[in-house]
Design a protein around this nucleic acid. Structure first.
Length: 415
DNA sequence: AACCCCGGCAACCGCCCCGTG
DNA sequence: ACACGGGGCGGTTGCCGGGGT
């Protein structure tokens, strides 16, 4: 059966909104809330489709929207999250307060995507194109790596969405929130009538995960600022100045205090990226080694995201090694991840999760990446152990951000 | 000055998911 | 179980302004 159009388009205005229309829409929503979008245009005296009104409101008129140039940190966050989530703009927008998914999408398509392409990086896989061309097998393996993290986040978002719907049922009306000036709290991608379900929690698992499985690296690389990743924003205050990779001992505080403020944990890749032409950008060979190192995986160990096994409050994963069930109704910290994964002994936690992420235990051949010292850090080369995987992963992100933040063609052998 | 090209962005379109009856 | 409506999401379009010729 055919689907009925969202509204009767006859006689409805299309195209750019006039200031008068904006004013009408704004006034109506401030007075009554949006309620049903379909019914809104008639009530507000607008010759517009309800969908158009919703879009106009969410992308332009909403008071909690930040407009203008994206900051470097926002760019980094977008790239990082895109590598993790792909074109899931609403999910990405969740982590960029006051930015809309549409704006992020546009910015990606018009700026960041082109920048990556220009540097020879596939904006889809976030890998160098020539590497992707090396072999189909390698490509699939590389894709599998990101899929590990994507599965985590997908599962997380689904559980979060369920919680959001539950909370929505309990929430007070939009009108009460709008009159109490609670504009700053909502997720950028969600209507104001939706409750705040902690957008900052979306990546808690990954944050905590990062904290857990990268901690050993801090021990060995904490002094090497040139290779390090520092944590900016709120997290920065909680970190040692020399900390290289976020270990969110206080992740709970970080994530909850993000409401209304800078809720995004930003990984600042402080390597030789700024003002230094030496090492800030990898040459082709070096970057390729890093990519290979990171991309080494065995698809045979893809963790299966057992959708049916997920209830509202938990995540279930099945890896080739172990089954994990993680409660989702909490904010994740490194510690809580540890305590909730007591199936895994602390001793091999890092290894297990690194396997989940990199799936390198099968072929265990990290010689390509591990044998080559990255100019980002220069520390650590070895034989495919967990620490090295951490290093490879770090190099991966450093690679992205160093390249993006130093788009100097002269430094890149790719062009 | 006129024209063309291109980049940026707001807005639209169609599909999909979810809740409800 | 199914149909339907509402809303969300991602892809795409098309307008507009700035720069180049």
């Amino acid at each position: 059966m055919g689907r009925s159009p969202c509204c009767d388009k006859v006689g409805l205005k299309k195209g750019p909104w006039t200031p008068e229309e904006d004013q009408k829409l704004l006034a109506y929503i401030e007075e009554h809330g949006h309620g049903s979008w379909r019914a809104l245009p008639a009530k507000a005296g607008l010759q517009r489709c309800g969908k158009s009104c919703r879009l106009r409101w969410t992308n332009y008129l909403r008071p909690d929207i930040k407009r203008g140039k994206f900051t470097l940190q926002e760019e980094q966050t977008i790239i990082q999250l895109h590598a993790l989530l792909g074109n899931r703009w609403s999910a990405i927008a969740t982590h960029l307060p006051k930015r809309t998914d549409n704006e992020i999408k546009n910015y990606w398509n018009t700026h960041l995507k082109k920048r990556l392409v220009k540097m020879g990086i596939d904006p889809v896989t976030h890998k160098p194109k020539n590497d992707a061309l090396l072999s189909n097998d390698g490509q699939s393996k590389n894709a599998a790596n990101l899929s590990h993290m994507a599965q985590w986040e997908s599962a997380r978002l689904e559980a979060e969405a369920r919680l959001a719907r539950q909370s929505k049922l309990r929430s007070s009306s939009f009108h009460s929130s709008i009159t109490s000036q609670e504009f700053t709290a909502p997720s950028p991608s969600s209507p104001l009538s939706k409750p705040v379900v902690g957008p900052t929690r979306c990546l808690d698992v990954l944050k905590a995960w990062n904290g857990v499985w990268t901690k050993p690296m801090n021990d060995v690389s904490v002094a090497n600022a040139s290779a390090g990743i520092s944590v900016t924003g709120l997290a920065r205050d909680l970190e040692s100045p020399t900390s290289t990779l976020g270990y969110f001992e206080n992740a709970q505080h970080i994530s909850t205090s993000g409401i209304g403020g800078n809720s995004t944990i930003l990984y600042e890749f402080v390597g030789n990226s700024s003002g230094s032409s030496e090492g800030g950008i990898m040459n082709n060979e070096e970057s390729e080694e890093d990519w290979k190192g990171f991309g080494n995986s065995s698809t045979g160990h893809l963790p299966e995201y057992n959708k049916d096994g997920i209830n509202e409050n938990s995540l279930s994963f099945t890896s080739g090694l172990q089954d994990l069930t993680l409660p989702m109704d909490t904010t994740w910290t490194a510690e809580s991840l540890r305590s909730n994964t007591d199936q895994i002994s602390p001793a091999n936690f890092v290894e297990t999760f690194t396997d989940l992420l990199l799936s390198n235990s099968g072929d265990g051949d990290l010689s390509e990446g591990g044998g080559t010292e990255s100019d980002n850090g220069g520390e650590g080369s070895g034989s495919g152990n967990a620490s090295e995987n951490c290093e490879d992963n770090k190099n991966y992100w450093n690679s992205i951000f160093n390249l993006v933040n130093n788009p100097s063609p002269s430094d890149s052998a790719m062009f």
